[in-house]
Design a protein around this nucleic acid. Structure first.
Lengths: 337, 337
DNA sequence: TGACAAACTGCAAACGTTTGCGGTATCCAC
DNA sequence: GTGGATACCGCAAACGTTTGCAGTTTGTCA
């Protein structure tokens, strides 16, 4: 591999001039710059990123941490969309992405060893033991979706309008006449579950109604578990008239359970899906959906992290991306006749 | 951040000894080693990976390239499974993963700039302009799934038993009595499409039968396109009695089209799915599937690449992972009564 | 022509490691 | 007590860059 010195020798200048020419800095005669660039091209020169990193104390890589999670969870299109968003901003800003799945060591050490300049934790669990260390060591880091309000420490986060969307969706269902609304949640160590359940309860409360605990089910975010739980719900003597499903993994399980019993949507039961997948667009009937703008969340997360790395702080520590409830045909008035 | 020199000063030894102690090399007294390790712990020392990389000429990172592709394609669980496989082996072998999506520059430059030690290209297109450069520059690289036999250049690859599986599936359908078997393919710049179509044709040929071009459809690997093409097929005066769908993205489109017409599987039409998703396990009826062992392909790819980096060559340049046709309930004899 | 500023250029240090080599201490056997 | 082997230790170079500083050239204007 060609180095800067070889170029210098070949061009007959010092290698500081070569460096300046290559990084188009000021202070090098145009003809020399041109010559240097030509020779670099000819030798197929590529700057040694480690050497650069060593002196500049910046490697140009963002660490994307996907905490220890089960295989089926990682299959969620959530991650794909997120990675697309992250990667598009990173590309534009001159950063690369290091993907860290099921890391068994502290996230902070990635930064301490200068492997990455900063860290994004995706789908963080609120009991993740490695996140407090990030704030203690003051590592540039962003978590998605973050922590409940008033949490014991503060770390930059990006989220979508989780609370508002679920609140709107439940209010909408209540207005349609539904009272027995089931919620297929994920694990309660996910802020997604916590915030959305909070909104669910608030929507009932604000209408002067009471939700029923038996309709609230904690899944492990998997399709099979959602299938099972939806089965339990439908076996109740008074099954729910509507159900809201927390993500793209659980929704197919819910739908499959409903379909396999020959129930009709929305005549027999209304369904609201939460997710980022366009899978739901082709279901029959088209699903009323809380469309989570995951790619945009990813873009924002990358932007915040890059700002954090550059400036040591960021203007907005807790970004919320607007999202929307899209009403389609899987929800109807109740009772339905 | 603590450096090796600070540890040396604090321990009262030279920093070469510290280095040796930390990398548990020979040539340092046990009590000194112990002391050094304690101080390192206490100072929260982490070796500077760039400094290390500079002198060792090895950064410990594998580049995972996902060529320019559309958003919906990246959503395919194929990539998730692959990344899980890659990451598990990489973790075990002390490597990290750099994820490069939609890279607009040459893949080889990643290696030339010492950002990564080697490169894995996922779902390579046979007309990808950046891959020949990898072999020209002798960059450690593996492509998945690779190129057709007798291609103009040779590059290590990992694939599953694409050909055999499709051959078996088509033979199986023919034995059931099917003659009009549709194939929803992807783009013909993908070796997946090429090889599988080859197998499709061979299965007919070897039975002394002729396939019909009108039943072969090239999709763009998307669900919506598959939905459209399946529509065209079912609109034919002589629609197919069976269909095989090339991946996890196209299958839902195919199924949705069939269901929306009120056709019954397998009475009216038999369906064979190709893919890695367990999505199909919950469909009604359960799908006869060519289960592609994508995670294992990923694991093998990482292993081959690491061997390539270490030894400069690998024993097996073209690994094929065995897979299987899993017969479930979406395929039946024809005619069906 | 001279003075002064501006633009250019090169030297050398620095970034944090690893490692070959030569030197020193330790130990054991005779 | 001497010899030699062995284990340990530190010096200094090396990896490929960037960059502050000082020195040199060029240009401009009076």
């Amino acid at each position: 591999m060609a180095t800067i010195k070889e170029i210098a020798k070949k061009a007959g200048v010092s290698y500081s001039s070569v460096s300046r020419a290559l990084n188009n800095q000021t202070g090098v005669r145009p003809e020399i710059r041109k010559k240097v660039l030509e020779i670099a091209q000819e030798l197929n020169y590529h700057p040694h990123s480690s050497a650069k990193a060593l002196v500049q104390n910046r490697i140009g890589v963002l660490g994307v941490v996907i905490p220890r999670t089960s295989e089926f969870a990682f299959q969620n299109p959530y991650y794909s969309h997120m990675l697309l968003g992250l990667s598009s901003v990173a590309n534009d800003m001159g950063y690369h992405l290091m993907l860290v799945i099921n890391q068994q060591q502290s996230y902070a050490s990635l930064c301490h060893s200068h492997l990455v300049d900063g860290i994004i934790v995706l789908a963080n669990r609120i009991d993740d033991p490695y996140i407090p260390e990030l704030v203690r060591d003051n590592v540039p880091a962003v978590v998605v979706p973050g922590y409940p309000d008033g949490w014991e420490f503060d770390i930059p986060s990006v989220n979508s309008e989780n609370y508002q969307d679920v609140y709107r969706a439940i209010t909408y269902l209540i207005n349609l006449g539904h009272r027995d609304i089931a919620f297929i949640l994920g694990g309660m160590n996910s802020n997604y579950s916590l915030v959305r359940l909070e909104a669910y309860k608030a929507a009932f409360r604000d209408k002067g109604l009471e939700y029923k605990d038996k309709y609230i089910k904690e899944s492990d975010f998997s399709k099979t578990d959602a299938f099972r739980l939806m089965g339990e719900l439908l076996n109740l003597p008074d099954p729910p008239s509507a159900v809201i499903s927390i993500n793209d993994a659980t929704t197919p399980g819910v739908l499959h359970q409903i379909n396999s019993r020959g129930l009709r949507i929305p005549k027999d039961i209304s369904v609201v899906a939460i997710g980022c997948s366009d899978l739901v667009d082709l279901t029959d009937p088209p699903l009323t959906t809380i469309k989570v703008p995951v790619t945009q969340v990813g873009r924002a997360a990358a932007r915040v992290l890059i700002e954090l790395i550059a400036k040591g702080e960021c203007r907005e520590r807790h970004v919320v991306i607007p999202s929307a409830l899209v009403v389609r045909e899987s929800t109807g008035v109740w009772p339905s006749r």
